[in-house]
Design a binder for these strands. Structure first.
Lengths: 410, 410
DNA sequence: AACTCTTTTTAATATTTTAAAATAATTTAA
DNA sequence: TTAAATTATTTTAAAATATTAAAAAGAGTT
């Protein structure tokens, strides 16, 4: 029993075999998206007769894809059996890689988190050794988990740098000119591998298991060290042509002379981002402002966390002022996106989401001020619900979506 | 023979009737999207046997939905019959309303323009009389056309003001609090009516019949009196929550003190738009600049056209300078959209598209300068192919899509 | 004119649906 | 409380429908 034959859509079958295969897929699809169902419900929705559906469900039952949850009560009459996807029939692995640490998580097919490991220390370098170390850490995680490796059907790895999801190439880290990185890692793990942009994965995580209810048009802002957005349009993750969409942080917005990490002048990130926050903090101290927070000169990332924590935990005036100013600016420029997208929901995620209302309220008021009323009234503003687990959970959801796509979109 | 029963998806049929209905729909769908087909092709793609498909096609043939185009040659063997949608089996009406004129067009189901009337003078006012006049003009157009009214299956009307496509309400023109405007017009025309944003319709027109080849992620810029964008994401027209998406022109971009037509300060339109072009022209004349163009003080819209025509037809230095400056600015701010969308294609439409390279080249160079290289390399920049017919043709395509949606998405 | 390739038709086979009967549980009424 | 009526699922077998595979037909090629 493996998902592979269920997903296999090769055409080396006779017509009636293909149709039977399609029916089985439709049942799985229905159970995945619509939750548990009775035979009668499946029959009505899949436009197949009760005897046919019964036969197919029994087949899936003995193969282990589906489990019988027992009889349920209804408004009189014979009680039907309720069927569900067997949650242990497939698992999905999600990995998030940072510069100094990585996180790994494992979910079953019902999106239930089986195991998660956040912030394992790992030095991301552009070497063969680093790549092997990376793969070994993942393999160890799998061995330590309670799940048999053969039950894992795929892996999604999030990178913050430039990657091409479609072709499986990574440009900033683990770069390899000839072969797609996915192929190399796949060889080490012996599992299908998909590369994903970290912000996009976070957005999808919030969509599947986070703060999103029924909203179908969503902008997720990853407001952290840098700034990027992930978009869900009409209920589908948006990629753009090559999967580079969402680079909001490198929009040329300001006429300042600050050089961005990307090399251009005046990017949004030069005034609105974790790294610019540090510069603003240092500038203020130089100007004689006082603060309870002392920065660790060795680690920029720790500095960024210290300022955010200074605002939310210590209520340090300077930190609060700085994040408020930034957030209001962020709101002003997010209003451009609001006017363009008319979204149902705007989610603030990333490290700045920890600030809660310190970030959300200035953003909200700036949105009110700068966006069109009609568009602003249509939208809800919320904070990420998954926090720092968003990336890993999102990765698990992404690889599930990718692998089950032929099944889900038919 | 009317499309209605073919589109009818009501569930008051037996299972086998429903399935048969679905097969017929699938054949029509295939012929609409994939072009003409033989029975063998249909059989392979629809996963039904040749005898079954033959029976269904023969049924559609006698009902008049499908026509036999005769035998075609292939690589030896018996020559198959090629089948096509009957182009006269359904017609779609598109209407574009401006403040002083309107345009109407009629297309058949194969997107062939049967009749078009551009720039019929009509004064758009918020009165009952104006609305009745409007409907009468449409009814006259239909009578004057060679097509029987009963063969027209729906109407799409484009407005430039705020409208809610989903609910059928118009806010700026023909406003009615209680009943959706679509309902009122529908009563007068005795046809199903859909309201659409003009820029979105233009974008869809270019997608279906204009400059778009196979691109699936497209930004269409309606660069005219105002500025708005229409988006196609993953091959589908994007609306947002209520259909207000695309309001790029009212993004707060500048820190100037110019009041926009929308009432806010610093909108993109205050420096980049047809109406701002007039102000810039007058300002320049006041500063002593020379120009061959003399503006008609009575009509702002004519002024706007005069300056654009001055640049493209007279090669007037001032006009060329102004549109070049504006276009470069436009390119700079479009680069934000590029970074966010990573589109395959950026289409410049609206009145400024008449400028050709006077507009396109400055936009292109600014895009190159301000957008991310990766994203810029992914994109093609093109000029609208449909010109001022984009709105009407787009409207026809939109109403066809709306009505055939259940058929197309199954 | 025979051969090859492909579509179309035909008839046998297989599958699915339909409808009726059986089962099972709840609701109502005596 | 108990039994009948009601509601709804499940099973069964007959009927309807679609598929398969073989044969026929059509059209070009050797």
């Amino acid at each position: 029993m493996s998902l592979k034959d269920l997903l296999d859509n090769s055409k080396d079958k006779s017509l009636s075999e293909q149709k039977w295969h399609l029916l089985r897929q439709s049942i799985i699809k229905r159970l995945l998206s619509g939750g548990n169902s009775t035979i009668a419900e499946l029959s009505a929705e899949l436009q197949s007769s009760v005897p046919t559906v019964t036969k197919a469900v029994n087949e899936l039952l003995t193969e282990g894809y589906v489990v019988d949850l027992g009889k349920i009560t209804n408004s009189g009459g014979r009680r039907p059996s309720l069927f569900s996807i067997n949650p242990t029939c497939a698992y999905f692995l999600g990995v998030e890689v940072g510069l100094t640490s990585m996180s790994i998580g494992l979910q079953n097919i019902k999106n239930e988190l089986v195991s998660i490991e956040l912030g394992t220390s790992f030095a991301l370098e552009n070497t063969q050794e680093s790549l092997l170390k990376f793969c070994n850490l993942i393999n160890s995680f799998i061995e330590d988990s309670s799940v048999e490796k053969r039950m894992i059907v795929g892996v999604c790895i999030n990178f913050s740098g430039r990657i091409n999801s479609m072709e499986g190439f990574s440009y900033n880290y683990f770069f390899s000119e000839n072969r797609p990185l996915t192929e190399i890692i796949s060889e080490q793990l012996n599992l299908p591998v998909h590369l994903e942009n970290d912000t996009r994965a976070m957005a999808f995580g919030e969509y599947c298991e986070g703060v999103v209810d029924d909203e179908q048009n969503i902008i997720f802002v990853n407001y952290s060290w840098g700034v990027a957005i992930g978009m869900i349009t009409d209920g589908k993750l948006y990629y753009g042509k090559s999967g580079y969409s969402g680079e909001f942080g490198h929009s040329t917005i300001f006429n300042n002379e600050i050089m961005c990490q990307c090399g251009k002048l005046g990017c949004l990130e030069t005034e609105i981002s974790g790294w610019s926050l540090i510069n603003q903090f240092k500038e203020a101290i130089k100007d004689g402002k006082q603060s309870k927070v002392v920065l660790d000169e060795n680690s920029p990332v720790l500095q960024h966390h210290a300022i955010i924590s200074g605002a939310v935990n210590l209520e340090d005036t300077l930190c609060v002022d700085l994040v408020t100013q930034q957030s209001e600016k962020m709101g002003r420029y997010l209003s451009i996106l609001l006017n363009i997208f008319n979204p149902d929901l705007l989610v603030i995620g990333g490290d700045f989401a920890q600030l809660g209302d310190y970030a959300l309220l200035p953003i909200q008021s700036a949105l009110k001020k700068y966006s069109l009323g009609l568009v602003n009234r249509d939208m809800k503003l919320k904070k990420s619900a998954l926090g720092r687990r968003a990336g890993v959970i999102g990765a698990c959801c992404v690889i599930k979506e990718k692998l089950l796509f032929p099944l889900i979109n038919n």
